[in-house]
Simulated assay, not measured.
Amino acid sequence: MEKMIAWIIGRLPKPLQKLWYAHESVWMYILVGGLTTLVSLIFQMLPTALFNAVHMANWLNTGLSTTISWIFAVTFAFFTNKKYVFKSKTHTRAAFWREFYMFYGARLVTYFLELAIMELGNHFFATVHGEIITWRSLLVKIAAQIVILILNYIFSKLVIFKKREDGAKK
């Protein structure tokens, strides 16, 4: 992935290359966040459609679909953020698991926020028959992802992958 990005950036005009390299971690976070959002959307919409087909209750459908989506998205986000965004290198298992647990813990906080946004949003978009209208659920999911993306960057940058003053990882 790094070579592909370097190839693409190398073809941009010099001012855009400078802009990229001046804020590389932010741009990488946005790129990885976009890919994470795509993973999240796919794993939200597939179960939602399946659960609608079997006439699962809206509250259970939303909760279960959001949980499945969260598990896939957070797992993808941990490894891509660690490697490509924050370039965190852990030299011990303890250091790896520390980052892992902190990452999932922070994401758990934003998961509950996302779940609340999804529940409230889908409550307003439920049809007379009680089924969630898929495209409206998708709009709610996208709005939730924007809020979550910002909060997750703050947690990751300031807490989880924070460099110590000597430049080493905790």
Rank of each mutant, 00 (worst) to 15 (best):
T62N: 14
T62R: 07
L64K: 09
T67E: 03
I68M: 12
S69T: 03
W70R: 06
I71N: 02
I71S: 06
F72E: 00
F72G: 05
A73L: 05
V74A: 11
V74T: 12
V74L: 08
F76L: 04
A77E: 06
F78L: 08
F79H: 09
F79S: 03
F79Q: 06
T80E: 05
T80A: 07
K82S: 08
K82T: 04
K83N: 11
K83M: 09
F86N: 01
F86M: 02
K87A: 09
S88Q: 14
S88I: 06
S88N: 14
K89R: 15
H91I: 09
T92A: 07
T92G: 12
T92L: 10
R93L: 14
R93M: 15
F96L: 13
W97G: 05
E99H: 13
E99K: 13
E99V: 04
E99L: 09
F100W: 13
Y101W: 14
M102C: 06
M102Y: 09
Y104G: 02
G105R: 10
R107N: 14
L108H: 04
L108Y: 08
L108V: 05
F112H: 08
L115I: 08
A116L: 14
I117P: 01
I117H: 03
I117Q: 04
E119I: 13
L120K: 11
F124G: 01
F124Y: 13
A126K: 15
T127Q: 15
T127M: 14
H129Y: 12
H129L: 10
G130W: 11
E131K: 11
I132S: 01
I132Q: 06
T134L: 15
W135L: 10
R136Y: 14
S137H: 10
L138E: 02
L138V: 11
L138Q: 04
V140Q: 01
I142C: 08
I142F: 10
A143N: 04
V147E: 00
V147T: 11
L149A: 11
I150V: 14
N152Q: 09
Y153A: 00
Y153S: 00
Y153E: 00
I154V: 13
F155Q: 05
I160E: 01
I160F: 04
